[in-house]
C-alpha cells in the first residue's frame, strides 16, 4: 500500500503523516505527478487560504491531476473546500469534484472561525464504520461547504453544513481526523482499509 500526501503551500502535511504513522501506515509527502498518480491512496490536506492554495496547485498542474485520479482520494479541511465547485474565500473556483459551494460563516453571536470539537451526524459512508453517531471531531474553519447531494455527514455550527462529502472515489472531511483523537485515527484507518 502506497499512500501519498499531496505537498503544497499549506501547513499540516506533517500532522497527517504523523497520524498515519500512529496507525502503522507508511506515506510519502510529494507534489510529484508520477508519485501521486501511482499511489494507492491519496490524501489532500490543507490549512490556509483557498485562493493562494488554488493558484499553487494550478501552477504545478496539480489541479488537473487531482480531479482525474481514479484511486481513493481523501480531502481534509481546505483540501475538501478546494474539491468543491466554488469558494467565497478569495472568490475562487475549485476543482469541481463536488457539486457544492463553500461559504463564509456569518453570525453576530457565534465566533468565527469555529475552533474546537463538534459532533457529526447523519453519517453514511464507509469512512464512519465503527464510529458512533454524534462522534466528536476537531474543527478549525471559517468557511463551510453547504449541504448537497454529496453530503455524507453533517455538523451544526450557526447552521447545518457538510462535515463530509463523498462522490465515487473522492471522499472529503471538513474536520481534522489527524487531530481528532482515536475517532479521527479510526476514520483514517477506514479510508486506507475500506475504500
Amino acid at each position: 500500500m502506497q499512500v501519498a500526501i499531496i505537498k503544497y503551500n499549506s501547513g499540516n502535511v506533517f500532522s497527517v503523516q504523523n497520524a498515519l504513522n500512529r496507525i502503522g501506515v507508511d506515506s510519502i509527502i510529494t507534489d510529484n505527478k508520477r508519485q501521486i498518480e501511482n499511489a494507492d491512496r491519496i490524501i489532500f490536506p490543507g490549512v490556509g487560504h483557498a485562493a493562494s492554495a488554488m493558484q499553487y496547485l494550478q501552477e504545478r498542474d496539480l489541479d488537473t491531476i487531482i480531479k482525474n485520479l481514479l484511486q481513493p482520494v481523501l480531502g481534509i479541511c481546505l483540501g475538501m473546500q478546494l474539491m468543491c465547485a466554488h469558494s467565497e474565500e478569495g472568490d475562487t473556483s475549485g476543482l469541481g469534484i463536488f457539486d457544492a459551494n463553500v461559504k463564509k460563516f456569518a453570525s453576530p453571536l457565534l465566533k468565527v472561525p469555529q475552533v474546537g470539537w463538534n459532533d457529526i451526524e447523519n453519517c453514511r459512508s464507509v469512512l464512519f464504520e465503527g464510529l458512533k453517531e454524534h462522534e466528536y471531531m476537531y474543527y478549525v474553519h471559517g468557511y463551510y461547504a453547504v449541504i448537497s447531494q454529496h453530503t455524507c455527514a453533517q455538523t451544526t455550527y450557526i447552521l447545518p453544513y457538510s462535515a463530509a462529502l463523498h462522490s465515487g472515489n473522492f471522499y472529503a472531511v471538513q474536520f481534522h481526523p489527524e487531530k481528532s483523537g482515536r475517532a479521527g485515527e479510526k476514520l483514517l484507518k477506514n479510508f486506507i482499509e475500506r475504500t
Partner: peptide
C-alpha cells in the same frame, strides 16, 4: 509530542 499525541 507531535509524533505521539492525536489531539491539537
Amino acid at each position: 509530542v507531535a509524533a505521539r499525541i492525536n489531539i491539537p
